[in-house]
Write a protein that binds this DNA or RNA. Structure first.
Lengths: 364, 364
DNA sequence: CTGAAAGCGCTTACAG
DNA sequence: CTGAAAGCGCTTACAG
């Protein structure tokens, strides 16, 4: 890293040095606009709010003044007076997981159409950081929050919040939590995936990843057991391995089920990044998913189809979930706290090569 | 998608319905705190600001009142009066590219230590959306902006902004742009990567991806040509393929250089997602990176080492760049617009299997 | 449609 | 350390 260099105020290639700062000039306000346009302050305010009360000619004069003076609307002042804001906070447990990024992009897109600005914060599964972030967002006047709670979040802590502010939980919810909820049909998705593995003849099917206490895991595990029972298979506890929901977690969980006296021949993973860890672990051992072990993920992130072999997964439409979470929250903000909703989204099995049901070249 | 269901106010499993909204209660302000703590408004303000002027006993009484009343500090009101904010805006061209997510995570981390809240917005390479986002962030009183400008951004448009607000450009800068700049040493990194390919005996080396007008591409292409010249190789224009800096772009560019009368045997890709597209395209053709074609990416995102084969790449430390961009911007905010800085970060070649220099199992 | 007045919740001098 | 006063930039009734 020896060549890192810092060149204060210098030129890099064609880059130009900043000019001296503009003279400390007073902020342009609606009073200035009013004066220049020859109207009252109130009229300017009406124009800014898009009121139909103002005649076209005056409206044009106001906009002219706005452009000429380089006026910037001060939303802080406006919301101080009106007690309304257009800020939406996103509190995400792990943005390094591409699935949550897809969720965030969906939320962001939904905000675009509503003139709402999304704040985003990554808690990194840290409940202390999560509490800080939520406090900061409240202090900044967020009109509502979309939360993917960190592992270990206490519902009671958040209920104190959700009783005062519209909150929507996305993907993850909490036992005894209050607020809107937008989640995929975890149980159904897991059941479908497991049933597929059973139909391929597997009898030692593992469930890999997720931590105890995570409702998402409980639900997916329930669907997993449903399908085992339907296929007349026993649920061996040794095949239900807890692990952090990330790549290293997947790798560790794989090692565990391969080391059993009766190793697993197939696995449903808690999510796609766990499955990617499993794929990676297989490659390290000279094994191949779809041939030596059937692997299915959950989420169907964009990366899934690019794995070698392409990863079979349960598609939950992350961006769509994000859009719906935003829509639910915006409705809740508009309608008041009592308007919480629950949305259960789809969970479709997308079969690719990693589960061994299709040739390696398919699903690409 | 038939099973998607919306259940307003209903129960999902253990989830509880929200209680009726709390009675519309007046907001708790510092006046309430002052009254309860038996001090003046000014004293509360001093305590909130962490001033050492207030005696410990009073400070404790104030904090007690804050907890008891559930007071939430109103940053909007504070910044309206003080004309200062702790909001930092991030304007990112493409958050779906994991590299920019790494950058954003670095920025976020740097903000944590400074009580600064980062806004994030994804422009999706859309200059119109970018302009909207920047306006909105200004209206919300952002103290400064970190911008990864969208392809096609006009420097003149942004200079009107950067003359009024501290701005740091991360990864991408603009011809004639003003503001701080934090970028890796693109030219050196590309030269190293290309020299490595030449040293392996390749004589038909392609440069794939990036769009005309992108400075990053110009710089990487310059390093590419440097290394070709040093190796005594001619720069064949047919081997310099423009393409969007994403996976489909990489795939399309690969098709082009494989279709030439004298196909390329090696390629340096504009960035890792382009390289991943190339890897994917090779797999589709039954070809293998590292054996049938040497492939090197740029950025070294976390995904790179998980490819099959693992991707050789030029590591630029995305999170580190993000942290430095934030540090530069925060200094600039503190010191005034004239304090713009330029930082050139490292660009180290990380050799893995995709360029054919090491066995496939290494670099995992 | 317009104008004058009040007030959102805070910080900032300023006099005690 | 404390208290009273002013003001940040806007919106909101309210009377014309």
């Amino acid at each position: 890293m020896g060549e890192a260099s810092v060149v204060a105020g210098a030129e890099i290639g064609t880059f130009q040095v900043a000019p001296p700062p503009a003279a400390e000039t007073r902020r342009v306000t609606i009073v200035d606009i009013a004066r220049r346009a020859g109207v009252s302050k109130s009229t300017v305010s009406l124009v800014l709010a898009g009121s139909p009360l103002v005649r076209e000619a005056k409206r044009a004069r106001v906009h002219e003044a706005i452009d000429a003076l380089g006026y910037v609307y001060h939303r802080g002042a406006a919301s101080l007076r009106s007690a309304r804001t257009s800020l939406l906070g996103m509190v995400i447990n792990d943005l390094a997981n591409p699935f949550f990024m897809e969720l965030a992009i969906g939320i962001e897109r939904a905000c675009q159409t509503s003139d709402v600005v999304p704040f985003i914060a990554n808690t990194g599964e840290n409940v202390v950081r999560q509490a800080q972030v939520i406090r900061l967002m409240r202090e900044h006047g967020a009109a509502g929050l979309i939360i993917c709670p960190a592992i270990g979040t206490d519902a009671a802590d958040l209920n104190a919040l959700t009783d005062r502010l519209p909150v929507a939980f996305a993907m993850r919810r909490l036992h005894g939590g209050r607020g809107s909820v937008v989640v995929p049909d975890n149980r159904l998705g897991a059941r479908r995936a497991t049933a597929h593995l059973a139909s391929l003849g597997h009898r030692r099917i593992a469930f890999l990843g997720g931590m105890p206490g995570m409702i998402v895991r409980e639900e997916r595990l329930a669907g997993f057991r449903d399908a085992l029972a339907e296929a007349g298979l026993a649920a061996d506890p040794a095949l239900q391995v807890e692990a952090l929901p990330n790549r290293p977690g997947g790798r560790a969980a794989l090692a565990q089920v391969l080391g059993l006296p009766h190793p697993a021949t197939a696995c449903l993973c808690f999510n796609d990044v766990v499955a990617i860890g499993v794929l990676h672990g297989l490659t390290e051992r000279g094994l191949m998913a779809g041939r030596d072990m059937a692997v299915i993920g959950f989420d169907d992130i964009a990366e899934a189809r690019q794995m070698v072999p392409p990863l079979t997964s349960v598609a939950v439409d992350g961006e769509g979930l994000g859009e719906r979470a935003a829509a639910v929250l915006l409705r809740q903000i508009a309608a008041g706290a009592a308007a919480s909703e629950s949305v259960i989204g789809p969970a479709e099995l997308v079969v690719r090569a990693s589960c061994g049901a299709t040739p390696t070249s398919e699903g690409v």
